[in-house]
Amino acid sequence: METTAKLAFSFIGVLLTFLLPPYLDGIARRVKARLQYRRGPPLMQTWYDLNKLFSLPSVKPTKSALFTWAPYLALASAVIGALLLPYGNVVPIDIGFNLVVFFYVILMVSVFLMLAGLTVQNAFSHLGSAREMQIILTVEPLIAILYGVLAYNAGSLNISDIIANLHLTPSLVMTYVLLAYALYVESGFMPFDIAEAEQEVIGGPLSEYSGRLLGVFYYAIYIKRFALLWFFVSLLVLPWVGPINTTLKAAEVLAVQFLLTVALYPVIASLEATNARLRIDHVVKMNTRAFFAGIVILAIAFMGW
């Protein structure tokens, strides 16, 4: 493919990364509102909220530099994570082993959130951070194992190579199912938004944040959610469309990715709306079970099924 086309696709990727996530949240709000028989806010509402937060100064309760930097670092991590993914057949930041990089970069968003909560003297921040840590500690091994299955199946640690070389086995199907769960947990959607639970720990690590910094944190979280969903959608779509040779085909694939992402978000929103928040011990238990299931899948994959 020509360089201009590649550049164009990368540009689209960047655009999607920065612009789409708040709209997706707007869709989710709308869907939830309709499930609750409410009118709901306009699709742009999340943008309006962010815009307002960006324009307000932040109150800083501590002198720690990490408190100020954590939102920006989280945002940077989330953006990098999103740009490691294929748009059409183009990966904006194409480096070797980028599955591993993707894993760590997305993890960093949660880590920065957790660290930010620990920089302030606030019982609720600490509780939230502790919860975030427990979730990370239990869900990340599961994700690592599932990524391992993918890498083993395709024989590569590069996302585009993996996508090109996946072949359908029973273990892969199970991996997809478990991956959907793990990524849902990592995204921190409703039954699992324990770290930021408003009614319990008034926002957890975010409780001391305000104004611009809070806006940046929210933006980072939206982008992280988008990246994880886009990754899953790419795994769903790209391996099965055959080789992408022409620009037209790449554009078609990108369109399918985009539409599927937009279509899956309402599904997530309805899951969120129909569930109560779980308690941290419930989640730890569930994640541990899933982890053992992951190990079984890995074993199955090693056996070649």
């Binding site: 509102a33 309709r34 028989y37 409410r38 009118r39 709901g40």
Partner: peptide, 8 residues
Amino acid sequence: KKAPVTTP
């Protein structure tokens, strides 16, 4: 009608 029941 079970449409949105809220009013602006």
